[in-house]
């Protein structure tokens, strides 16, 4: 059976784009799939340069590729994953998809006209918008999962696990580049009594509000995490001890001066802060231990204050314990 009649209707109805170009990259044929989406008439672009008919197409890159197809007589490809689209065409999922243009896979094939032997290159364009949309959704949910995995559920600051990973990173960075690095440890004063007097819901509100207040006092590069219970920790990169003490004092003052509203009552709270500083001799663990010791001393000194670590603290702690 003769099937010469087949190619005509197939090209008309094919659910992929077909663009045929001659060796000068002039348009020989475009099928209705492209014509309709680009809102052009075949007659008006026939014989025109591809890039004058589609001025938005990536000219330098695409003509290089098309020329490689012609001179090597080997096919070339373009994937939406690397280049979202070659031609600005609308797609048929305008509501469910955020991106404006059809994501495209493109095959570029070398063709030879059998009688004249003339070479052509044919672009086959497939709509990959669905794959693009699913991939974007997947990436977005992965990003959300990653965020959730890093944050403390109650206060929204970094969770202990992620905070501690970040501390390791910052300690290494500070060591490598000889940058200053300071650490604050702080704890809500008499938090247990607040829980006993007003209930755990009040305690939660206080944790959330204090975290919010302190977060607003920090720079974007500071790393604020919940260490456990009512204990929080802040990594201050590129901050020498003096700067860290100032931040700590500001935190102390602001928390003590800011009432937190809970069921028409004004709850007052305060924090005690321990400060330690990175020097090349210290590890992340040591830095934490030193800030924790300073925090303990701040509590012993009567709370609502800042104490900076000094080596004798270790001895004073031993005395307390013995």
């Amino acid at each position: 059976m003769n099937i010469d009649w087949l190619s005509g209707p197939l090209l008309q109805q094919l659910n992929s784009g077909v663009i045929l170009l001659n060796q000068q990259l002039q348009i020989v044929y475009i099928n209705p799939y492209i014509c309709r989406r680009a809102d052009i008439q075949l007659e008006s672009v026939q014989g025109k340069d591809l890039f004058s008919a589609f001025p938005d197409a990536p000219k330098a890159w695409l003509s290089r590729k098309l020329n490689s197809v012609l001179s090597l007589q080997s096919p070339a490809f373009s994937s939406w994953e690397q280049r979202q689209y070659l031609f600005k065409l609308p797609h048929l999922r305008p509501i469910s998809s955020a991106n404006q243009y059809m994501a495209q896979n493109c095959n570029m094939l070398p063709l030879t006209e059998p009688t004249s032997g003339e070479h052509f290159v044919c672009l086959l364009i497939e709509d990959a918008t669905d794959a693009y949309v699913y991939q974007s959704q997947l990436q977005q949910s992965n990003l959300q999962l990653q965020q959730v995995n890093r944050l403390d559920g109650l206060t929204g600051v970094l969770n202990r696990n992620y905070w501690q990973q970040q501390l390791e990173v910052e300690v290494q960075r500070a060591g490598r580049y000889q940058h200053p690095l300071s650490l604050l440890f702080f704890d809500l004063d008499k938090f247990k009594r607040l829980n006993d007097d007003y209930g755990h819901q009040a305690g939660d509100i206080v944790l959330i509000e204090v975290a919010k207040l302190i977060g607003s006092l920090l720079r974007e590069t500071d790393l604020f995490g919940r260490y456990g219970g009512e204990e929080f920790a802040i990594i201050l990169p590129d901050t020498p001890l003096q700067g860290a003490i100032e931040v700590a004092k500001r935190i102390c003052r602001r928390v003590a001066a800011t009432p937190i509203e809970y069921q028409q009552q004004q709850l007052m709270t305060s924090v005690s802060v321990g400060v330690s500083q990175f020097s090349t001799a210290t590890s992340a663990d040591e830095l934490i231990q030193q800030a924790d010791l300073a925090l303990y001393q701040a509590k012993r000194n009567g709370r609502n204050q800042v104490v900076t670590y000094y080596p004798e603290l270790i001895d004073s702690l031993k005395k307390v314990k013995s």
Partner: peptide, 13 residues
């Protein structure tokens, strides 16, 4: 051009 695009181009050629 993205690196991935460059790599696939080289390889396919």
């Amino acid at each position: 051009t993205s690196e991935a695009e460059m790599l696939t181009d080289i390889s396919s050629i």
